[in-house]
Amino acid sequence: MKTVTFRIWRGDAGGGKFTDYTTDVSEGMVVLDVVHKIQATQANDLACRWNCKAGKCGSCSAEINGIPRLMCMTRMNTLPTDQPVTLEPMRAFPNIRDLTTDVSWNFRVKTKIKKFNPRKPDAPDGTWRMQQADVDRVQEFRKCIECFLCQDVCHVLRDHHKHDEFIGPRFLVYTAALEMHPLDTEDRLPELKQAQGIGFCNITKCCTKVCPENITITDNAIIPLKERVVDDFYDPLGWLWKKLRPKV
């Protein structure tokens, strides 16, 4: 058991400040446990969103010592405790109160992405046939828990506030899952290039680093989508090849 100081953001959309709370931390505790303890003993009005405490609901996203992380999956023994542990809400979204943010922008963005549009069924009974190897590729993207940590760390949203022009890594992953799906027939590349602003991504890989599900966001989703956009809009030989190559 040791005593640790937490520097927690207290405030709302109108402003706020950091407040220090000192509490005892025992073996096995995660940051969310400490927040609940502070909430129970020192600050009953401390606002914090949480649900599963198992890294699967994506609710308790926050910035711990400046890095976007899930509070429920950040063990105290991984943090330096000789100095205050900083806890603040995600910076890419409007603060509601204390550690909670309004992430509704993300759900509005999702509605604008073209939905899954499968080809005609392969069998008379209305079913399809797919190879496991082809499904595996997009299966990785289905691990996303929508914690929006990748959106938070992306400097295009976080620092440059391009929310109207860029959909962010989460929805590039979502688009990749649809666009690379073996059954899907929809073409999302014109929107990706224009309204959804894939060109804003400058490949910092910060989104990959913070993903709690270890999705290889940049290498497996964003860069392949960028390459598909190059195929259609920037590569004359590729465009020609796409027209001439045999369909598989």
């Binding site: 295009v156 440059h160 804003f200 991504c201 910060c206």
Partner: peptide
């Protein structure tokens, strides 16, 4: 320094990414 590192403040407020010249030329990579 665009950005200097993940979750670190940047020196500029404007950002065009790789959408416009000259960085749109990065698409010549292949």
């Amino acid at each position: 320094a665009d950005p200097p590192n993940c979750a670190v403040g940047e020196p500029r407020k404007t950002f065009l990414g790789e959408r416009y010249f000259p960085l749109v030329l990065q698409n010549v990579h292949r």
